[in-house]
């Protein structure tokens, strides 16, 4: 009896995972190079360009709902910021809205990514990996807003850049 229970449990787990994989109906990949410049104390206007990559996949569920999964990576090119005495920080906020602009879901405060580095010269650093599942109705159209935030010790005010995708 005990062995049968374990067997059934394993089958259920297997079914759960295969259903997730098989039901991945759509995916969207986006890649933005974000060019931004801002006022600093010791360098005048400084370039803080970075790259945002997102991967989003939808799994359709019964009752017109779908499971929405996404991951975010921020790529940061330190060579341009060469002044190594500075600290740098880039974060990502994200929110999902319906066509009327009502927020459907946001990334949790503990999930949004923040990095503070002294970056090795000439190295390409990536970070900001983040993922979360959302349950949304598939009936109404919606869009996602990704916001990157760049900050540095020499920067007077952080840089905010919004990027929008219609789903």
């Amino acid at each position: 009896m005990k062995k049968l229970n374990i067997f059934i449990f394993c089958i259920l787990i297997l079914l759960f995972y295969t259903s997730e994989v098989l039901a991945a109906d759509h995916y969207y990949d986006n890649n933005w190079v974000i060019n931004c410049e801002a006022l600093t104390k010791n360098w005048g206007i400084r370039n803080f360009s970075h790259e945002l990559r997102t991967h989003e996949a939808c799994n359709y569920l019964p009752n017109q709902y779908f499971l929405f999964y996404r991951e975010v990576n921020v790529f940061w090119y330190p060579k341009q910021y060469a002044a190594p005495e500075l600290w740098y920080n880039v974060g990502v906020n994200e929110k999902f809205k319906d066509v009327s602009g009502n927020t459907l879901g946001t990334i949790g405060i503990n999930d949004w990514t923040s990095m503070s580095w002294i970056l090795p010269i000439g190295q390409k650093v990536n970070g900001g990996y983040n993922s979360e599942d959302f349950y949304f109705s598939s009936l109404s159209s919606k869009y996602a807003v990704y916001q990157t935030i760049v900050d540095a010790s020499d920067l007077y005010w952080p840089l905010f850049t919004d990027k929008q995708i219609t789903l």
């Binding site: 410049e37 801002a38 006022l39 005048g44 206007i45 370039n47 007077y156 005010w157």
Partner: peptide
């Protein structure tokens, strides 16, 4: 370089 950047930057 700064002169060029300053032309299109609202902060400055």
């Amino acid at each position: 370089e700064q002169k060029i950047l300053m032309k299109s930057n609202q902060d400055i």
